[in-house]
Design a protein around this nucleic acid. Structure first.
Lengths: 239, 239, 239, 239
DNA sequence: AATGAATGAGGATTCATTCAT
DNA sequence: GATGAATGAATCCTCATTCAT
């Protein structure tokens, strides 16, 4: 149990409330990871968090809200890091973009677990108002991250939309790839054999490779559209 | 109601049984498309198919089995068509590969609807034996399709695994992109504005573009690894 | 437990289903009478009826439907009996009308218990379509009963509406009087004293008296409107 | 929000406490009228009154206590006005009694809304001690009002009980009639048609008519028992 | 007096699946 | 093969009330 406050102890300050809210979210996550499939029940979450069922409903309106909060955390964390890292990184290179995109491996290890539930489960059970608010914030984050990538690659403002589309393509690709690479645990071992290798590639390897392909090709196309010998030549430099 | 046989009429011949089985599957599909979100209930499926609940359990062990059968149909249809079309197509070009991959638009319009439920819902609720059988057949199909692509691109046997990986990457990309492009209907209209464009690209357009990038880049890399002026030059020809 | 069918035994014929449905309704009634206040829960009803919770939902869509069915039974029983009895009764007299209206005492002993929940609880929680159907049937019954009363009193067709209004006034009066006469059991004994007599009249006595007043006055007024010495003189005859 | 005192401000004087108590009661009423059906929750009441949930429990022991207080206000208001008005009115007539009884229309517009919840909901959830106290006061008020009516009608003391019974019959009749005339809002419009007219009379019209019948008949009976040409002749005078 | 976070019993409803006929 | 009544575990969510501060 993730008791951050003693039994029956109330969170009075904003900070304590944040902590309690977080303990609920973390409990939901840990249960989800332990038993993938359906979203863990409120009952289980409350038990895990060491609070009563009613308390969880003080902090979240519905079960799905908890998972939406989790997903939001992971997605924003990913995008914020991308933005921050690329604006600090001096050398403009495709590889550093790919490396940064792949950074979820360390910092947001559960990003794709949650994102994979997003479409089929979470978003479908959220109040449309709450969902819209989530999407609004998310669109902003995606745009900021795309801008950081564009600046890092020293592309001009006209290419804003292209970079945004590329970022979404990377997101889509990673989302799909994660699903491809993670079959149900019940048959994971049965798919170890050589004949199933095609159905179950290694996520890290194929993800990185796919992203590289996407961004290499993007830089090639971008360069073509520019004057030969333009500033983008450096993008081909392998770091 | 999709009554293919009269009420309470028995399906005696194998053909009749197939027809009844199919009517269940099609009923499940039509309900799923009508009300996306959760998988339609067995009650609804049986009603729609004009049979009793018990009868559906004669043909399918679980509810998810029905959807797995649907998914299998769509996936095999897609892969078989790829295989067939590419082996008939004489001119080896990236574009024809991409065109063929995009052929689901006409022939398997519900492929991604089902595939998007696959990871989060369907596969998790299937008996592992049945799932393994499904995966075995599917792996075969993927390999055959990949082989057809390889032959079409006139690549040699050593590149078998590369092409297989590429095909899976395309599958993963399309799977993810479809999910990205299809938010819940409840907020679809609310996301029409310009500021949400990044979150909701047009599926056909971005899918084709993404596939092109993937395969263009693949051909570039493949060519690099070969002797200069090798057989793959023609892949750059835009059809 | 009201088991009319053995455990886990299925009601196959329409008759058996009616019996099972009835056993659910009767269980609901017996629980309601035992513990007035809130409507007994579905759990309790199912237990009492010796069926599972799910079974009750086969026969009734909601909990309130059960009570609406009960109320309907009692109300229709009351009105049908009024209709039947008055059309058989030869002597046209106010007293026989009042006697017949009071007949619920024997035949529909729970009529007012249920009717008193109708306004504040039952009707508020019923699907509007079902409620409309209930009201439609009820309106018919009330009209038929009013017609029987009118014919019994040898009033002509022009007085249809007056008699209908009178019948509703009697219904309203009995409904209110029952509520007045039946305080919560928790304080029933505490209200025995003389000083509370005003708040807790005897239902039968005051109900009969009130009805007599209503119909006597009605006949007086009706007579006034007629030619002096008209057919209604006989209504004043005390039986 | 009905803030009568600033947020978190204490009610120190008795007057302030009365005001706060009243603001809770009025909030409960406004919510009840806005959303008929179930009694509004304590949460909603507290919010509406601009106080915390805990504070409402300082002023009332249970939720139903609030509604009992409301009901008491309306009932006492009604009865007091009857008493006052009739003792001031010089001309003794049935019509003025009926007019006075109908005075709730202006002065206690929510009397029957609350009274209709009384039997099925409010009284059943009140502590018996509190309920007894309520009933004791109410019995007094009813008696006083009945006495005023008796004096107005110039009846002698022997008829005390008869008039009391009559007053309760009027109360019962109005209570029932109000319930009959007010179906759930959800189907109010669906019952507009002619065929439902019987089920949904106009409250004001039928209430006045019913009361007139009751009291006319009462005066008739009372007169009969007296010497012919007695003091009650004037009761037949139509005002 | 006032607060409001926490409680947790309680209750309605759903639905995949079974099995006797 | 076909039926569909019966099952009952599963689960979300509500809300009156408490009590430490």
């Amino acid at each position: 149990m993730n008791k951050v406050l003693g039994d029956k102890q109330r969170a009075r300050t904003a900070k304590e409330k944040d902590r309690r809210r977080d303990s609920i979210v973390q409990s939901a996550l840990s249960l989800l990871l332990a038993q993938p499939g359906a979203l863990p029940t409120m009952n289980a979450i409350a038990n895990q968090a060491g609070v009563s069922k009613g308390t969880t409903y003080i902090y979240f309106d519905t079960k799905e809200s908890i998972y939406l909060a989790l997903l939001e955390d992971e997605l924003h964390g990913w995008l914020e890091r991308i933005e921050k890292q690329l604006s600090e990184e001096p050398s403009a290179s495709i590889d550093s973009v790919v490396d940064t995109l792949m950074g979820f491996n360390e910092a947001q290890p559960n990003l794709w677990t949650l994102a994979s539930l997003s479409h089929a489960i979470i978003e479908l059970n959220i109040d449309s108002k709450e969902l819209l608010s989530y999407k609004t914030k998310l669109a902003q984050r995606f745009k900021s991250a795309a801008k950081a990538i564009r600046l890092h690659l020293q592309l001009d403002e006209q290419q804003t939309e292209d970079v945004e589309a590329m970022l979404m393509q990377s997101y889509a690709y990673l989302l799909g790839q994660w699903q491809v690479c993670h079959p149900p645990k019940s048959i994971e071992k049965l798919l170890q054999g050589q004949s199933f290798k095609i159905l179950q590639p290694d996520f890290d390897r194929s993800a990185r490779q796919g992203l590289s392909q996407q961004w290499q090709q993007f830089s090639t196309q971008t360069k073509k559209q520019e004057a030969p010998g333009g500033v983008l030549n450096r993008l081909f430099r392998r770091s």
